[in-house]
Design a protein around this nucleic acid. Structure first.
Length: 271
DNA sequence: ATGGGCACCTGGCTGC
DNA sequence: TGCAGCCAGGTGCCCA
C-alpha cells in the first residue's frame, strides 16, 4: 500500500478541506472492500461534523462529532478531494459529500482498502489496539529494536515490516531503510549488532521523513489528495532498481524474493 | 510464542 | 491478437 508516508501525505492533503465540515451524505458504490461495509453506514454518517483527521500506523482516523471513521488505503487505494459533480471513474468505491460542496472520494482498484465506523475510541478497535509504536515515537529506540531482535531467526526485513514491532514500514521503505543502514534484508535478526540496530532506527526515521516531505512514493496507483503523485520514487536507492548501478558504489543492485516479497540490496554496501 | 503460507482483488506487463 | 502466468505500496487469519 501506500505506506506511512503516503498515508500521512493523504492526511495532510485532506485535512484543510474537511476540518469543521459536515457530511451531507455518504455514497457507497462498493460495499465489498477488505471487510464488508454495512448498508446502514450511509444513514449513520449523514449530518455529522468532522472534527479532526489523525493517523495511527497506516490507518487514517477521521473523528466525527459522534464516532470515528477508520480508513485504510490497502495496496492501491487513494483518497481525493474533488468538486461535487466530478464524474466517477473505474474503482471509485465511496464518496463523502461535504456541506462545502466538495467530496472526498475513495478509489481502490484492488479493493484491499477498508472502512470502519466506530462509536468509541478508535485506538481501542481490534485492528489498532495491538499496534507497535510509531516510528517517530520516542519509544522506538535502538535499544527497543535491538532487544526485539534477540533470539529471532527471521530476516530483519520481516521484522521491520511486522506491525507489532514498529508500524508504517512496508516493502519499499523496509528495503530503503536497510540500504541506508547498510544491512542486507536477509540477515537473521539475531545477528544484528547493537550499532546496526541504532543505524536502522535512524534510517527508518530518515527515509520516512524524507518521503513525507516529497509527498510519498508513486509507483502505480497512489496519488495524494489533490491527485498529484509522490516524488520519492526519484530518490529510491534500491527499490525496483535490480541490475542498475548502486547510487553509492555503482555495484549492480540485486533482487531476491523473500517471503514472497521483493527485496533489493547492494551486495557491496550492505552486509 | 514464533513464523510461514494463504487469502482477499484487479490490472498491467511479458512471453509464447 | 489472445491468453496464460506472474507481479504489485497490505495485513489478518489459520496452521504447524
Amino acid at each position: 500500500m501506500p505506506e506511512l508516508p503516503e498515508v500521512e501525505t493523504t492526511r495532510r492533503g485532506i485535512e484543510p478541506h474537511v476540518l469543521g465540515k459536515t457530511i451531507v451524505a455518504f455514497e457507497l458504490y462498493q460495499p465489498r472492500l477488505r471487510w464488508p461495509i454495512p448498508r446502514t453506514l450511509p444513514g449513520a454518517l449523514a449530518g455529522l461534523r468532522i472534527e479532526s483527521v489523525g493517523r495511527r500506523a497506516k490507518y487514517l482516523l477521521i473523528a466525527l462529532e459522534r464516532g470515528s471513521l477508520i480508513v485504510h488505503l490497502g495496496m492501491s487505494g487513494s483518497l481525493r478531494v474533488l468538486s461535487a459533480g466530478e464524474p466517477r471513474r473505474a474503482h471509485d468505491q465511496y464518496d463523502l459529500r461535504l456541506d462545502s460542496g466538495r467530496i472526498v472520494r475513495f478509489n481502490d482498484p484492488r479493493r484491499f482498502g477498508s472502512l470502519h465506523y466506530v462509536e468509541g475510541d478508535p485506538l481501542e478497535h481490534r485492528l489498532l489496539r495491538d499496534l507497535a509504536p510509531e516510528p517517530f515515537d520516542a519509544a522506538f529506540t535502538a535499544d527497543y529494536l535491538w532487544q526485539l531482535t534477540r533470539g529471532r531467526r527471521l530476516a530483519v526485513k520481516q521484522l521491520l515490516m511486522n506491525s507489532r514491532l514498529v508500524v508504517g514500514v512496508g516493502n519499499i521503505y523496509a528495503n530503503e531503510a536497510l540500504f541506508r543502514a547498510r544491512v542486507r534484508p536477509g540477515r537473521e535478526a539475531r545477528r544484528l549488532t547493537r550499532a546496526e540496530a541504532a543505524r536502522l532506527v535512524k534510517a527508518v526515521r530518515t527515509v520516512l521523513a524524507q518521503a513525507i516531505r516529497v509527498g510519498g512514493t508513486t509507483l502505480r496507483d497512489y496519488v495524494g489528495a489533490d491527485g498529484s503523485p509522490g516524488y520519492f520514487r526519484q530518490k529510491l536507492f534500491v527499490y525496483e532498481r535490480a541490475g542498475q548501478p548502486c547510487r553509492v558504489c555503482a555495484t549492480p543492485i540485486r533482487h531476491r524474493v523473500q517471503q514472497g516479497r521483493s527485496s533489493y540490496y547492494c551486495p557491496a554496501c550492505q552486509r
